[in-house]
Design a protein around this nucleic acid. Structure first.
Lengths: 250, 250
DNA sequence: TGCATTCTTTGATCTGGGTCAATGTGGCAA
DNA sequence: TTGCCACATTGACCCAGATCAAAGAATGCA
């Protein structure tokens, strides 16, 4: 499927020409490979809330996120929903060698994707080993992140879950924007309370309550619903219940 | 680390020479590549309960399971434990390009592993593209399995969790042993109640209770603690709460 | 043959987070 | 400027699964 797709400006922000602030498949490419990538890429933009792909859809491209945030989500027949991955700028989605999307892909903010047509991308992979290596590396990172999340889903309390999510978002958002000294961090949540709940295996009410509790306890300062200030990142990590925080998400 | 390692018989069951009942890295290898694999492989056997690797250990080999079952397990500082992967015969463990084990690897039954020394394995990978492809494929399978499990951990009830686990074990064990007609399945659980609990994000008491409940309801027949008969596999899948059961584990 | 150990089952009780319901809030459209 | 709508918070109550505790198997070993 594909819903109304907004054409993106032609001169999209540093993608394809590898001005890597987004680490992508082309991290180590030479000029000719970059040209090859350029020739098979196109941009797509989506609005917050749009579903880019439904589970089972044919997927004829692979892509990396240029800006915005998307989720990978699984839904049971009775509607129970679990988000299984968060995509931030520079994250990759799609799998060479497979042609069906295994989950719903949903934009949780306005989103710009840099897409590569799959067939030619696979051909390029065939003659450029390091792209395959990079992909394996990225997939292993995602696997580690998924397994980290399994620990969270299976064993952490609601408060720890929220703190863990905030820590991950803080890391990812902070890496994009300004850094503030002394472990202080400021960012906007790219997720609604419901989307947070779906990622954490909670209800949105519990998310809301725990957010309030963290606020009451001074772990975070909320300005509006989405804007978060973390006075001490270390303190937040303590609440998250693990210091060995892998926390790479995909 | 490495604990007491029992030397395995030299003529180990069809591994390395690719008599594939265990799909492994060498699924499509030619004679010379097989010889190369042969020259860098060795066998290790472990007893039920032994920890093969501790999280953070240097891992100088990659391996595939010949017989027996192992788990990949994460532990929080306070002891809370979550199993993040189950390894059955033919499953692969280890990651080229990385040298530390990211989880504890524990034998839950007596276990025989076919190991390949990592350095030469990576070199072989370098000059044999399809091994890398195969590895990417396997890693994507594991990722799918991990994400399937995230849905289970985040959204399924205790009964559904148990049924899902039984279904997966039944599939994997049944693929090794005889097939019984008409959806009837018979197998031995390769896990203690506690190991099941760690994989499902439950306590062992809840596992025990739900096993009793499934037995009471005729979904399974228990003979002893480990031997399970599933009169109707379809019925079991219904209890698991998903028909779209990916259920590949690793 | 007996007893010790490890794994498992079962019961009684407690509680974190779910459910149901009402109320608050901020942004936008008319 | 009002009123709507989507999102968020808060409260009251409940229940699935955790916790605490006590018996059963099954196995091995002296």
């Amino acid at each position: 499927m594909q819903m109304t797709v907004h054409e993106a400006p032609l001169s999209a922000p540093n993608c394809g020409n590898c001005q890597i602030r987004h680490r992508a498949v082309c991290a180590r490419c030479e000029t000719d490979e970059l040209e090859a990538l350029d020739s098979i890429k196109f941009y797509r933009s989506f609005e917050a809330g749009q579903t880019l792909l439904w589970s089972g859809d044919r997927m004829d491209f692979v892509a990396s996120v240029v800006s915005g945030v998307a989720t990978l989500t699984q839904v049971m027949e009775d509607g129970r929903t679990q988000t299984v991955g968060l995509l931030f700028p520079s994250d990759f989605v799609g799998r060479p060698g497979r042609d069906k999307a295994p989950y719903n892909v949903i934009a949780t903010t306005d989103l710009l994707m840099c897409c590569f047509r799959k067939k030619p991308f696979e051909e390029l992979m065939g003659r450029t080993p390091h792209i395959g290596q990079r992909l394996l590396e990225m997939t292993l990172d995602e696997l580690d992140a998924a397994r980290e999340w399994m620990l969270l889903l299976g064993r952490k309390t609601a408060r720890e879950k929220i703190a863990s999510l905030l820590a991950i978002v803080a890391r990812r958002e902070a890496s994009l924007h300004l850094k503030v000294p002394q472990g202080r961090m400021i960012f906007d949540l790219p997720l609604t309370r419901e989307a947070m709940a779906d990622y954490l295996g909670l209800t949105l009410e519990t998310v809301s309550r725990q957010m309030s509790a963290l606020k009451r306890d001074g772990i975070i300062v909320l300005e509006g619903k989405r804007h978060v200030v973390v006075p001490s990142f270390d303190r937040l990590l303590e609440e998250a219940g693990d210091d060995a925080d892998g926390g790479l998400v995909g």
